[in-house]
Nucleic acid binder design. Structure first.
Lengths: 191, 191
DNA sequence: TTCAAGGTATACCGATCTGTATATTCAAGG
DNA sequence: CCTTGAATATACAGATCGGTATACCTTGAA
């Protein structure tokens, strides 16, 4: 976290525009001029708020990560304490989140495909979300009294990421419900 | 297949250079000048052989798809007829293919992240490989006398793509062996 | 021997890229 | 009232983008 960003209304408009464009077309494919134009803002304002495109990319991923976690938290709050039910809720939330974003797949995975340098400041954000998801699954596995929670979490993660990418590419039409049922089944059997 | 490409030695050098660069850094991040330079070729030669960068991208993906299928076929030829054993071979082949490509994940998935237009000529190549993989799994499921081969193939595909992406991001360290065991288990239990 | 083909070298085109400079407007706060 | 800051408009810089043009060289086959 180098220097904090002044979150003026225009800064928010820039982030929103950048988010839509980056997600829909890819990071390298979108120029700052296009972002500024869509946000109804001058390029100078964009650079006054974010300093560089790279920083804007990081903020885009941070924002998306945070919004996803809030979205998921809302769904989990409305679910009872049964670990299997909560696990099903996670997969259903991912499915709902995917359609809400017109199904271009996972923003983190897509960004990872475009960023080659592991020292890029966006890297920790990307792998951070994936690690956080594994921890979430591990917590559910622990609550279900599974012998090897981290191992079970890894298996569930495979199904989750698999659904993410196959649904994003429309390779499997019922990817999400299928992945959910398999994950719940896997959790039950591991207990 | 618009017009055929003259596969001169230099054309092959261009394709090899483009493949390495596209895979390592992403398609939009690599310019034609860089490709020509690495291939030891003038830009004119590149355009004489491929006509456009877009065409070069398509050829890159086609080549990768074909090399992967040949690689897998070689491994499957050395495996007996037991469907479970062949399924394990597929996952082991994917794991070996992944490390051989220094683990930047799946070229098709990565390309899909950068190509927004569904009318892009690379699209059929990308989804074609995924569809082909599902068909492969469905064939194995049929050979194992599974009641719902296509459903089982979808489930296996989830594990396969999940391993592809998590291993490519180094989110799960033993992704491939774990995915293989789960897939084999799934096939056995479905029979 | 001529001629076509694959290649090199080099220069250029217009567009777009990230990022900066300058000068101006407008609203809120001490 | 006057200053500060967030914004505007516009122009520009230097690099790189995909792609083309021109002239020349070399090699193998008719």
């Amino acid at each position: 976290m180098e220097t904090a960003i002044e979150w003026t209304p225009k800064a928010r408009a820039v982030l929103r525009a950048a988010g839509e464009l980056f997600y829909a077309q890819g990071i390298h494919a979108v120029g700052v001029d296009t972002i500024a134009e869509r946000a109804g803002v001058t390029k100078k304002t964009l650079y006054d708020r974010f300093g560089s495109k790279e920083r804007l990319v990081v903020e885009y991923l941070l924002d998306r990560d945070q919004r996803w976690r809030a979205f998921l938290a809302g769904r989990l709050d409305a679910t009872d304490d049964d670990p299997a039910a909560r696990l099903a809720t996670v997969f259903d939330a991912s499915a709902a989140w995917a359609v809400e974003n017109s199904g271009k797949g996972c923003a983190m995975i897509n960004a990872h495909a475009e960023i080659s340098d592991p020292n890029h400041p966006a890297y920790p954000v990307i792998v951070g979300q994936k690690r956080w998801m594994i921890e979430l699954f591990a917590g559910l596995a622990s609550a279900a009294d599974v012998p090897d929670p981290r191992g079970t979490a890894g298996a569930i993660m495979l199904l989750h990421e698999g659904a993410l990418v196959t649904a994003g590419m429309h390779a499997i039409d019922d990817a999400w419900p299928r992945a959910r049922d398999l994950a719940v089944d896997l959790l039950r059997r591991a207990a």
